[in-house]
Amino acid sequence: MKDDRHNTGVREHILATAQAIMNGKGFSAVGLNEILKASDVPKGSFYHYFRSKEEFGKALLERYFETYLAAMDEIIARDDLTGAEKLLAYWGRWLDSQTADDPQSKCLVVKLAAEVSDLSEAMRRVLLDGTGQITGRIAEMIEAGIADGSLRITGQPHHVATSLYQSWLGASLLAKITRDGTPLRAAMTETRNTLG
């Protein structure tokens, strides 16, 4: 049992260390040696956990979505918030994380999606599944808001969720280009208007 915990800890350490690096440089620009040096693990240990860089990238994205979706689930589970308040808490967290200086908090979807979707079908599928789960949870919060009367949205919840998510992804990308949080603040204003 101790070996399993140790193995999980080493694997998690490699993934967490690499996420911060890749949030800054992207997938292709980060070499295995840089990951190994930053993680302080030997090459053999890396290949014990990951057969290839592609498999490593897939695991990195799976870990990212697992953590991201768990944070969304915490918001969804809050009984003290209406559906509208849950949505605003979610978007507020996005705004805060994408305007912060912490590379671990940055959106890995924004950083890697365009790059790895053309490089790896396995990684593209993880991105597709993960973003689908995110929009599904946003739709769930919209449905809750309609049910509790805190939202008066006329469109289909899933279509509204998809549109809002796409808007925030675009705003996050523009914020990276401009190095300014203005596009994200504009997305929040648009989101508030959409949610009424």
Score class of each variant (00 low, 15 high):
2 K>V: 15
3 D>S: 12
5 R>V: 05
6 H>Y: 08
8 T>P: 00
8 T>N: 05
8 T>K: 12
10 V>T: 13
15 L>E: 04
18 A>D: 08
18 A>R: 11
18 A>K: 14
23 N>M: 11
25 K>R: 12
28 S>R: 14
28 S>N: 14
29 A>K: 13
30 V>T: 11
32 L>W: 00
33 N>V: 07
39 S>L: 00
40 D>L: 07
41 V>D: 02
43 K>I: 02
44 G>N: 14
44 G>C: 09
50 F>R: 06
51 R>A: 14
51 R>Y: 04
59 A>S: 15
60 L>E: 09
61 L>N: 04
61 L>W: 09
63 R>N: 10
67 T>P: 00
68 Y>D: 10
68 Y>N: 11
69 L>I: 15
72 M>D: 05
72 M>F: 08
74 E>V: 13
76 I>K: 13
77 A>S: 15
77 A>R: 12
78 R>S: 14
81 L>K: 07
82 T>I: 07
83 G>I: 10
84 A>Q: 15
85 E>W: 01
90 Y>T: 10
91 W>C: 06
95 L>Y: 01
95 L>H: 03
98 Q>V: 05
99 T>S: 10
101 D>P: 07
101 D>Q: 10
105 S>M: 12
107 C>D: 15
107 C>S: 14
108 L>V: 02
110 V>K: 04
115 E>N: 04
115 E>T: 02
116 V>E: 02
121 E>K: 00
121 E>F: 01
132 G>L: 02
132 G>H: 02
135 T>H: 09
138 I>H: 04
140 E>D: 12
141 M>D: 04
145 G>H: 05
146 I>P: 03
146 I>H: 01
147 A>Q: 12
152 R>P: 00
154 T>P: 05
154 T>G: 11
156 Q>V: 10
156 Q>W: 07
157 P>H: 01
158 H>K: 12
161 A>G: 12
162 T>Q: 10
165 Y>W: 15
169 L>S: 00
172 S>M: 12
173 L>P: 07
173 L>K: 10
175 A>H: 01
190 E>P: 00
194 T>L: 15
195 L>I: 14
196 G>A: 07
